[in-house]
Design a protein around this nucleic acid. Structure first.
Length: 484
RNA sequence: GGCGCGGUAGCCAAGUGGUAAGGCAGAGGUCUGCAAAACCUUUAUUCGUGAGUUCGAUUCUCACCCGCGCCUCCA
């Protein structure tokens, strides 16, 4: 088994890359800000979730035991607005998109967290927490709502680096904020408005503010101080800043030790937006015939602290890269190996593994990790060409490849099955031809080739290719085929 | 304006104070009836611009230019 390796992650709070030191040795508690289920998630959301997934799989492969929480926001302004527009209750609306999210997770191969929680299941806990904030002077009620008193928490701004002075009151006053002491104060509990869902509270009927849910759910499930909190970079301010304030004001303890933020995803160099026509959901991409593995590879291949410019061209490139990995896996698997050993190759395998893990340990450098794998792939291919790869090396490479894939999750993925089981995604043309039909056409083509009727043989191959079947002739005479 | 991320070959992208990983695409070759796959060779005298430190900078410092994000809806 591999030796332990020290893992470094960039921590937004300290603005530095620091060694990961869980409070409890090998046990790591982690919370991720999930989706507001008012609509389908888009690829920007999934960029974050894939990065978190890779991180978690890597940590597990390095021996950490994870306790993970992912939340879904199922009550907020947007939920109410969208539900009303769709003529549904907020609850029904949330249910529909929570289910869609689960399907998306499945499609992309995102591991299920230990706790997948919804805000509305924790209302009493939120109310209790807000009461503590009020009792300690950090919050105040006003006209049926409750606000956090930012002035009472001097450390406010430590995560986002925003000086308190710049967040002074009066900077902005909009009609909705007249009931606050200061404009920078944020809402913990919103007074009920007609037509909106409401829960009873000591301040009258209402609903929780957005920020409080993450504080309350994370601390309830992971404790008042835990190891890692992840989310998109745009959540740093105000969401995570507010979470810190709400939590630490009561506990007096460090809420979260490491903040892991995933940079933005752009589409064609611009912010994704529906009006620009560059807004993609996983369903959109699946309908265009793109595969889960390609999407996952692309999202995973750019290290998380870099903005990722998503393009369809980039997605095609990613699919090609995945194909090459699979082609190598197949070649390795079926190669007929002679007896012997190749110490040079064995050394290359060992160093590839070290480089792979080392890259990931260095703030999750996925690009570097992939380079290690592809370098090894070339060495192994060369060895296969020279018939200098033997059973021990094959086993070692397969072990590394399997370790790689347990983290990246792109090679041993049945893209066809994923697409088919993915509700709305329309299956690609390739799935229309049954295996028997493929075999029949291949037999015909084989006969044509034996007759040296190459025109017919090529026509049949073209026909198969149109159906997404790639045909490969081998030196030994048999024909291999696979689905694209 | 404040805070942050980034500018490396056609595209994506790693990286280091000592002279540029990897992927995709392209070109030539080996193999093939032709292909595919695989392999070999090839594609940045150069890392946004200028100056400085240094024996030496893409890597450090300063200034500037450009792209993007956040600044209380936002992954």
């Amino acid at each position: 088994m591999p030796l332990p390796i020290e893992i470094f992650l960039y921590n937004t709070l300290t603005r530095a890359q620091v060694p990961l030191r869980p409070a409890e040795d090998s046990r790591l508690r982690m919370y991720t800000c999930g989706l507001t289920v008012y609509d389908y998630g888009h690829i920007g959301n999934y960029r974050t979730f894939v990065a978190v997934d890779i991180l978690q799989r890597f940590l597990e492969s390095e021996g950490y035991q994870l306790e993970s929480v992912l939340n879904l926001t199922d009550i907020d302004d947007k939920m109410i607005e969208r539900a009303q527009r769709a003529g549904r209750s907020v609850r029904e609306h949330a249910e529909i998109f929570a289910r869609a999210f689960a399907a998306d997770m499945e499609f992309l191969g995102l591991r299920r967290p230990n706790h997948l929680v919804r805000a509305t299941d924790f209302i009493p806990d939120m109310i209790a927490w807000i009461e503590r904030l009020v009792a300690s002077g950090h919050a105040y009620a006003s006209q049926g709502s409750v606000y956090f008193r930012v002035a009472s928490f001097p450390a406010y701004g430590k995560l986002s680096g925003k000086p308190l002075a710049e967040l002074q009151s009066g900077a902005r006053v909009d009609s909705d904020q007249y009931e606050k002491e200061e404009a920078r104060d944020f809402v913990l509990w919103k007074a009920h408005k007609p037509g909106e869902p409401a829960w009873d509270s000591p301040w009258g009927p209402g609903r929780p503010g957005w920020h409080i849910e993450c504080s309350v759910m994370s601390m309830k499930l992971l404790g008042e101080s835990f190891d890692l909190h992840a989310g998109g970079a745009d959540l740093i301010f105000p969401h995570h800043e507010n979470e810190i304030a709400q939590s630490e004001a009561v506990t007096g303890r460090t809420f979260v030790r490491n903040w892991f933020h995933v940079e933005f995803l752009l589409v064609n160099g611009e912010k994704m937006s529906k009006s620009l026509g560059n807004y993609y959901t996983l369903r959109d991409l699946a309908a265009q015939g793109f595969h889960a593995s390609g999407i996952r590879y692309l999202l995973a291949s750019v290290p998380h602290r870099r903005q990722l410019n998503f393009t369809l061209e980039g997605l095609r490139q990613a699919e090609s890269a995945v194909e090459r990995l699979r082609a190598f896996r197949d070649r390795l698997r079926r190669a007929a190996l002679g007896p012997g050993a190749n110490p040079d190759l064995e050394a290359a395998i060992a160093s590839a593994e070290l480089r792979f893990r080392g890259s990931l340990a260095e703030n999750l450098n996925t690009a570097g990790a992939l380079a290690a794998i592809f370098d090894l792939l070339r060495s192994a291919n060369q060895a296969l060409d020279r018939e200098a790869l033997f059973v021990p090396e094959r086993e070692a490479i397969e072990r590394l490849l399997s370790r790689f894939d347990s983290i990246f999750g792109v090679v041993e993925t049945d893209d066809r099955a994923r697409l088919e089981s993915y509700g709305d995604g329309s299956p690609s043309a390739g799935s229309t031809l049954a295996d028997e039909a493929v075999e029949r056409l291949l037999a015909e083509r084989g006969a044509a080739r034996r007759d040296r009727n190459f025109a017919l043989a090529d026509r049949l191959r073209a026909q198969l290719e149109a159906a997404g079947i790639v045909v490969e002739d081998t030196r030994e005479g048999q024909v291999r085929w696979r689905r694209k």
